[in-house]
Computed example of a mutant assay.
Amino acid sequence: MSTDSGGAPYDAALMSAVADLGDALRGLVDASVRTAVPAADLQEVAAAVRTATGRLTAAVRPPGQLPALDDPVRFRRVYNPVAGVGSAFAPPLRLREEPGGVVGEVSFGLAYEGPPGFLHGGMSGLVMDQVLGAATIRAGLWGMTARLELDYRRPVPLDTPVVCRGRVTEAGGRKSVVTGTIALAEAPDRPLVEARAVFVLPREDLRAEYFARVTDASGRHAPPSRPTDATAPGAGE
């Protein structure tokens, strides 16, 4: 067993395998949208992928059951679609603390294309929800997304390093207001996307309702004490 930066234990061999598979799958997804090989090659690869899928589905977990490596209290979510090391969909974005908030650099490949050569606008929303949620957590606050607003100043280019930032600007009661940006890494002070979110901590009765069916990997009821899917900077590594 190993422990993360917060001291939470996890199976290091399983984590390594999950991260390795996630990296391989991200490479496959990227190759699948860039490839120009003949149809016959595509069919052979499709057959191989289906065989691999069969092996992976030999044992699966139901919705609501956390993976063995996840620890919501520590915000370790290995299959998170933005930051999860095991997710084929995640870029993945790795966030770290900076004075007043969080920051992370990432490049988006062709799998995230909207307008030709540029990032899909919906992906900007997904990423900024993650970044702003992480900034809220690092400020010692938490909640669920109640509102997310984005201003698209310029398109985000693909295959280009960009920097994502988030910081809490207001907090009181059950509500937090968080702002952030996406910018080119070479021009971090000129935002391509600006975001503002409101996170609200649900009432206790609603939290009990929302997470009534959540269990840990063994099937034991394990509702998150902090109802968020944001992955803390460094978690899952």
Rank of each mutant, 00 (worst) to 15 (best):
M1T: 12
M1W: 13
G6K: 15
A8S: 11
D11G: 03
A12L: 12
L14Q: 11
A19Q: 00
D23K: 10
L25Q: 05
D30R: 08
A31T: 09
S32N: 11
S32L: 10
V33P: 12
T35V: 07
P38G: 12
D41G: 12
Q43G: 07
G54D: 08
R55Y: 03
A58L: 01
A59W: 01
R61L: 05
P67C: 01
D71Y: 02
R76Y: 03
V78M: 04
Y79I: 07
N80Q: 13
P81C: 13
F89L: 09
P91Y: 15
P92M: 10
L93P: 02
R94Y: 14
R96L: 06
E97F: 09
E105Y: 14
S107N: 13
G109Y: 05
L110S: 10
L110V: 04
A111Q: 12
Y112H: 08
G114M: 10
P115G: 00
G117N: 08
L119M: 00
G122V: 10
S124V: 08
S124K: 01
D129I: 02
G140C: 10
G143E: 07
R147E: 11
R147H: 15
D151F: 04
R154C: 09
V156L: 01
V156W: 01
V156I: 06
V162Y: 02
V163T: 05
G166R: 04
S176G: 08
V178K: 02
T179Q: 06
E186D: 15
R196E: 10
V198Q: 15
V198N: 06
F199M: 06
P202Q: 13
P202N: 10
R203E: 15
L206T: 14
L206K: 13
E209D: 13
S218G: 02
P223K: 15
R226T: 01
A232D: 07
A232T: 00
G234H: 09
